[in-house]
């Protein structure tokens, strides 16, 4: 068992356990912190795939900025175990059914993906995740979608300012 395999299984276990804990924690602050752990584990996977830029951007943007804002909201509203509203039983059943449908769809998709069987991920090789290649791909092959998505972000920002001014 090579060292990359050990790291891979460790990160996988960490990601799954943390993701479960996000759902199982009663306290919303704990949920957010477990979600940060999930992002860390996924960043580790990106590094194993030699996608260092993706890994670090995942950490800066998701773990470092978005989750801090989540924490902000939760702390400002002072949500806690006691004050969290309890859903009634029908809501819980409806949630379980719809979540189960989604899970079944995912499993069906994985089973259908026949061209992926017997293949393993490219560990430590491949260079598309490096910043230079990613930048070249984004600004030459995909320049139009990239710029359109930036306009989308701009409109979201303007929208936030407009709502804030009201």
């Amino acid at each position: 068992m090579a060292i990359t395999h050990i790291i891979f299984w460790f990160l996988t276990a960490l990601a799954l356990v943390s993701a479960l804990m996000v759902l199982l924690s009663k306290n919303p602050v704990y949920s957010v912190l477990w979600l940060v752990a999930v992002f860390f584990a996924i960043s580790g996977h990106y590094i194993l795939l030699n996608a260092q830029f993706l890994a670090i951007v995942n950490m800066i943007v998701y773990a470092g900025a978005i989750m801090v804002l989540f924490l902000f909201v939760i702390m400002l509203m002072n949500l806690d175990k006691e004050t969290e509203p309890q859903k009634d039983i029908w809501m819980k059943i409806a949630g379980a059914v719809s979540g189960g449908c989604l899970l079944m769809m995912f499993i069906a998709l994985v089973k259908q993906a026949t061209e992926m069987t017997g293949k393993t991920a490219l560990l430590k090789t491949g260079s598309i995740g490096l910043i230079e290649n990613l930048g070249k791909a984004l600004f030459s092959d995909y320049v139009v979608p990239f710029e359109i998505s930036s306009v989308l972000f701009l409109s979201a920002m303007v929208g936030a300012v407009v709502i804030g001014k009201k």
Binding site: L33, V36, I56, M59, I60, A63, G64, A65, V68, L71
Partner: peptide
């Protein structure tokens, strides 16, 4: 990335 972790 590490600096943004310091906020936590």
């Amino acid at each position: 990335a590490v600096v943004s972790m310091g906020v936590y």
